[in-house]
Simulated scan of single mutants.
Amino acid sequence: MTEAPRNPVTPEDQRLLVEVDDRIAAITLNRPEARNAMSKRMRNDIHAALKACDANDGVDAIILTGADPAFTGGVDLREVAAEGPPGPGGDRRQAKDPARACRETSKPLICAVNGTCVTGGLEIALSCDFIVASERARFADTHAKVGVIPAWGMTALLPRAVGKRMAKEMTATARFVEAEEALRIGLVNHVVPHSRLMAHARRLAGQIAAATTPATPATLRIYDAADGMSFSEAKALEEELMRNWKVDTDYMERRGLGKGG
């Protein structure tokens, strides 16, 4: 029998790498020659990859990272410039919002920041549940400096991470926050040697996978939903969800949990 011809693999197909091992999915932005600037194709692929990992019963935690030397600065500005203005003669077809895709992912999502993480890249990192930073990581919000308004959640996410005054300073100055300062101001969870970044992220993901039940992502989403609420409002939300929660006994049995485990 003659095999059906396969579509050739193109460089664009390799711009996003996805690997699943030991219940951990690792998604890597793989355009190092452009410092992982994200084309429309890449943004759509990130959205699709996160949705696929979220739906995969063999995945308990997800790591999002970039190929050295950078995490990402956001959209590919050269592609944007080449599109031309909106309207006749221009191509302004929209791509998926990767930061929103991160926030909509129900499974614990770790951002492993390996280098420069600015503007749209920072919005993506802030949209993840945890940030592990290499000692080479540096963060900045340059939206205002280049004359644009954020669209992926910066003004909502950054002050929640570092406080309103620091968020305003980062935006107004567009200065870089180095890894150790990022740890000090609460922007990241951990700072580790560059060579140990993925090992550390995988260890954290492994701890999550070992402890995961259906209640894990549900509880993390309560943190998100309650952000900004008063204590009484947040407590009422927690109680409402707890009253309606049904333990997945089949899942607990499959994982050997719930009986002293």
Rank of each mutant, 00 (worst) to 15 (best):
N30E: 01
R31F: 07
P32Q: 09
P32T: 11
E33G: 08
A34F: 15
A34E: 13
R35E: 00
N36A: 13
S39Y: 14
K40V: 06
R41Q: 15
R41Y: 15
R41G: 13
M42K: 11
R43C: 11
H47E: 02
A48H: 12
A49M: 08
L50M: 00
L50P: 05
K51L: 04
C53Y: 00
D54G: 04
A55K: 03
D57C: 03
D57S: 13
G58I: 10
G58W: 07
V59W: 13
D60G: 01
A61L: 04
I62A: 04
I62V: 08
A67Q: 09
D68S: 06
D68V: 11
P69H: 10
G73Q: 13
D76P: 09
D76W: 12
R78G: 06
A81T: 02
A81G: 08
A81R: 14
A81C: 11
A82L: 06
A82W: 04
E83R: 15
G84N: 02
P85K: 10
P85W: 10
P86I: 06
P88H: 08
P88K: 02
G89Y: 13
G90H: 09
R92P: 00
R93E: 11
D97Y: 13
D97E: 04
D97W: 11
P98Q: 11
R100A: 14
A101K: 08
A101N: 01
A101R: 07
C102V: 14
R103F: 10
E104F: 07
T105Y: 06
K107F: 05
P108A: 12
P108W: 01
L109I: 01
L109Q: 00
C111W: 03
C111P: 01
A112Q: 07
V113E: 08
N114K: 03
T116P: 00
V118H: 13
